Simulated scan of single mutants.
Amino acid sequence: MNELTKAQVAEYLTQHPDFLIEQPHLLAKLELQQKEQGATSLVHIQQRQLREHNTLLKNQIESMSKHATQNELVYRLFSQCHSQLWSNYDFNTLASNLTNIICTSPNISNCKLVKYTAQYESLIEHRLTHSTHYLGRINQQERELLFSDETQSAAIYLIGDSKKPVAILAFGSNDANHFEPAQDNLFVLDFVRALQLRLLELA
Results as ranks from 00 to 15, higher is better:
residue 11 E to T: 04
residue 48 R to P: 01
residue 40 T to M: 08
residue 196 Q to K: 12
residue 37 Q to V: 00
residue 72 E to K: 04
residue 78 F to R: 00
residue 122 S to W: 10
residue 49 Q to P: 03
residue 32 L to R: 09
residue 61 I to V: 15
residue 92 N to A: 12
residue 129 T to M: 14
residue 172 G to Q: 13
residue 27 L to N: 09
residue 186 L to Y: 02
residue 111 C to E: 01
residue 120 Y to H: 11
residue 179 F to Q: 00
residue 7 A to G: 09
residue 62 E to M: 10
residue 118 A to Y: 07
residue 6 K to H: 07
residue 201 E to D: 14
residue 42 L to D: 02
residue 27 L to I: 06
residue 27 L to D: 02
residue 199 L to I: 13
residue 22 E to F: 00
residue 33 Q to I: 14
residue 1 M to G: 14
residue 125 E to R: 15
residue 141 Q to C: 05
residue 51 R to Q: 15
residue 147 F to I: 07
residue 28 A to R: 08
residue 180 E to R: 06
residue 100 N to H: 10
residue 58 K to E: 11
residue 145 L to W: 06
residue 2 N to H: 09
residue 62 E to D: 12
residue 81 C to I: 04
residue 195 L to R: 07
residue 40 T to S: 12
residue 98 L to P: 00
residue 108 I to L: 04
residue 70 Q to E: 13
residue 174 N to G: 03
residue 16 H to S: 08
residue 55 T to L: 15
residue 21 I to F: 06
residue 198 R to H: 04
residue 91 F to R: 15
residue 22 E to C: 03
residue 153 S to D: 01
residue 77 L to V: 00
residue 14 T to L: 14
residue 35 K to L: 09
residue 99 T to R: 15
residue 15 Q to E: 14
residue 155 A to G: 15
residue 30 L to S: 06
residue 52 E to T: 06
residue 100 N to T: 12
residue 42 L to K: 02
residue 175 D to N: 12
residue 58 K to A: 14
residue 191 F to M: 08
residue 89 Y to T: 03
residue 195 L to W: 09
residue 10 A to D: 11
residue 56 L to C: 12
residue 6 K to A: 10
residue 71 N to R: 13
residue 93 T to W: 01
residue 124 I to Y: 04
residue 84 Q to M: 04
residue 177 N to V: 04
residue 184 D to Y: 01
residue 97 N to T: 10
residue 81 C to Y: 04
residue 112 K to F: 07
residue 166 V to Q: 13
residue 62 E to Y: 14
residue 161 D to I: 13
residue 30 L to D: 05
residue 183 Q to S: 06
residue 84 Q to R: 03
residue 185 N to E: 00
residue 187 F to W: 08
residue 88 N to Y: 01
residue 142 E to Y: 09
residue 81 C to L: 07
residue 110 N to Q: 11
residue 179 F to S: 03
residue 101 I to S: 05
residue 147 F to M: 14
residue 100 N to E: 15
residue 41 S to T: 15
residue 201 E to L: 11
residue 59 N to G: 04
residue 10 A to T: 11
residue 121 E to I: 01
residue 190 D to Q: 13
residue 155 A to D: 03
residue 192 V to G: 01
residue 201 E to F: 08
residue 13 L to H: 10
residue 70 Q to C: 00
residue 15 Q to H: 15
residue 121 E to V: 03
residue 44 H to F: 00
residue 6 K to F: 07
residue 130 H to T: 03
residue 110 N to K: 12
residue 75 Y to A: 12
residue 192 V to P: 01
residue 80 Q to Y: 05
residue 65 S to Q: 15
residue 197 L to G: 02
residue 84 Q to C: 04
residue 142 E to N: 07
residue 63 S to W: 07
residue 196 Q to L: 06
residue 1 M to V: 09
residue 124 I to W: 07
residue 12 Y to H: 02
residue 5 T to Y: 04
residue 190 D to M: 09
residue 133 H to A: 06
residue 53 H to Y: 08
residue 70 Q to K: 06
